[in-house]
């Protein structure tokens, strides 16, 4: 029955396998973008610029990894930007105003994301409030808290003293350093991507997420604890928000109550362009990474080519709609 290996035509077999890759379409898009930009601008295809791009998308990309899982269970999380801001602000306030040592502040900051993730997960998974509404609520709560905590001011580690200033350089290295020339933010993104890939595509929990996204009823009939499976992605993305918040703080040395405003839309755009279907079930980690890279390359390219900043928003908006329409078309065709 399996006619893939007859005749030993390895090349033909490879072609067939490649064309079956789900993410082929956006991969080609990314490659094409690359080629166009390399031709249009001398400086695009330089190591510095490319590393810049990866660094620029790292934080958004890490959150997008979590968002992929949220979308896979037919959910959405609008609160990521706000929880990001709150985690960063909390950590900063603890370090500067409350004079709590750096390491402890970071751990407590991580807990902020965990808590909001749990809140979202429980409200959506167990109490069954629609994800859009629930996360819109937590978004406002988190944002409000961030603004209250920061008092509308910017907290800067270059200006405000901390309890253990000897640890500051180490803290700055975390986000601002680099290993063999690769910015550490990018490194964290790469490592988390690999972990996310294995978790989402190879582990039972990830499988169950995709199952629940495919059919809640079938999942329930198969003995899957649907409520817990729906809750998990929100907890994960909550923690990722905290991680990225602390990394950002380490990189920029400053936090602002208004940081991350609008971030959720970029994160969602990255995931949707990467092929995550809002109907649930068809997200892939690789797709999301490619989607996020496409956005980063686009933003970078638009500046290099000297295009209006407004154009950016238009292009990203169009991309998202086109990607979702194509996804719907794909699904309809398969029915």
């Amino acid at each position: 029955m399996n006619n893939g290996n007859t005749g030993g035509n390895i090349f033909g077999h490879a072609i067939r396998r490649i064309t079956k890759i789900k993410e082929l379409g956006i991969l080609i898009t990314l490659i094409l973008l690359f080629i166009i930009l390399t031709i249009a601008s001398d400086v695009f295809c330089t190591a510095t610029n490319l590393l810049n791009i990866v660094r620029q998308v790292s934080l958004m990309g890490i959150q997008a990894l979590g968002m992929t899982m949220v979308i896979a269970v037919a959910g959405v999380d609008l609160s990521v930007g706000a929880v990001y801001a709150l985690s960063a602000t909390s950590t900063a306030v603890m370090m500067t105003r409350l004079q709590i040592p750096i390491v402890l502040s970071c751990m407590l900051g991580l807990i902020v994301g965990l808590v909001f993730g749990l809140i979202n997960g429980i409200i959506i998974g167990y109490i069954k409030v629609p994800a859009f509404i629930a996360t819109m609520g937590t978004m406002n709560i988190a944002r409000g808290l961030a603004l209250i905590l920061s008092n509308g001011m910017i907290i800067s580690l270059d200006r405000d003293p901390v309890a253990d200033p000897d640890n500051l350089p180490g803290f700055f290295q975390m986000g601002g350093g680099s290993v063999f020339g690769i910015p550490s933010l990018a490194l964290v993104f790469i490592i988390l991507t690999i972990i996310a890939y294995f978790y989402f595509h190879k582990s039972m929990q990830g499988f169950r997420m995709r199952a629940v996204g495919g059919s809640i009823d079938a999942a329930r009939a198969s003995g899957i604890n649907v409520r817990r499976v729906i809750m998990l992605p929100y907890v994960i993305i909550g923690v990722l928000c905290s991680i990225t918040a602390i990394l950002n703080f380490s990189f920029m040395h400053t936090v602002q109550g208004t940081m991350g405003e609008g971030m959720e839309l970029d994160v969602l755009a990255g995931a949707y362009i990467g092929g995550a279907s809002p109907a649930g079930g068809s997200a892939t980690i690789i797709g999301t990474v490619i989607g996020v890279l496409i956005m980063g390359v686009l933003k970078n390219g638009l500046v290099l080519l000297g295009v209006d900043a407004y154009m950016q928003k238009v292009v990203i908006g169009v991309l998202v709609i086109v990607a979702v329409v194509i996804d719907m078309y794909n699904n309809a065709k398969r029915q």
């Binding site: 082929l24 379409g25 956006i26 080609i28 898009t29 094409l32 973008l33 166009i36 249009a40 390219g301 638009l302 080519l305 000297g306 295009v307 209006d308 154009m311 292009v315 169009v318 991309l319 086109v322 990607a323 194509i326 078309y329 794909n330 065709k333």
Partner: peptide, 20 residues
Amino acid sequence: MKKLLLVMLCLLLLAASACS
């Protein structure tokens, strides 16, 4: 279907370059 995405993207980018 993803080819459609490709074509649109290229057109968009070319238009953007022209705009610049």
